Amino acid sequence: MIVQSNDSLIDAAAAVLRPHRVGDRVFGDVASALVTDTGSVYVGVCVDTTSGTGFCAEDAAIAAMVTAGEYKIARIVAVCQADDHGALHVVPPCGRCREFIRQIDPANLDTEVILGRHRTSTLRELLPENDWPVSLD
């Protein structure tokens, strides 16, 4: 497997940031990059809609991965420019995205989630109590 550094995945995500405002909504202001267990890199951006039918950047990157026939995520990151000065910020996956990553493949509990240039955590650590459903017997 080709190892992607935190910085290289952060840069890959940042490269597709292209915020576009429509009314009070902004599309593409959060971007994600992931690398699979085979070394392939996929990117995606968020689409925020007023009707609630939008999706997170991680979802878009994962959809590109699944479209290509891959399911195991080795590492993933999401970034945004959270201020007017263009400073880049790493965004941890929301609860829905954490569960989505888990459901794509059981091995993804060991996905390394990038939380900063020098900080990571496994999905398993971010998604406690992930072994369900548990029988009451």
Rank of each mutant, 00 (worst) to 15 (best):
R98T: 08
V26Q: 06
R21E: 11
R75F: 06
A31V: 05
A107N: 06
I62C: 14
V90P: 06
A68V: 01
V90I: 15
G86C: 00
E70M: 05
G44W: 04
I101W: 04
V113A: 03
D48R: 15
A74V: 02
H20T: 14
L126A: 01
V43K: 07
Y42W: 14
G39D: 00
L126E: 07
E58C: 06
P19G: 10
V66N: 07
H89F: 03
T67E: 15
R102H: 14
A68M: 08
A87C: 15
G44Y: 06
G52F: 12
H20I: 11
V90N: 08
R75K: 09
V43A: 14
E129S: 11
R124L: 08
V26P: 02
D24T: 08
A57I: 01
C80T: 11
V90A: 03
P128L: 13
V26C: 04
A33P: 11
T36N: 02
T53W: 12
L127I: 08
A87I: 01
P128H: 14
G54R: 14
L34F: 09
D59A: 11
Q103N: 13
Y42R: 06
V113C: 13
A78D: 10
T53N: 13
E125L: 00
V66K: 10
D84C: 02
H89L: 00
P128A: 10
A74T: 10
E112C: 13
G39Y: 01
C46M: 13
I104L: 03
G23C: 08
V90D: 02
D110T: 12
T53F: 15
D83E: 12
C80A: 11
S121W: 05
A31M: 13
R98M: 04
H118C: 13
G69K: 06
V35H: 01
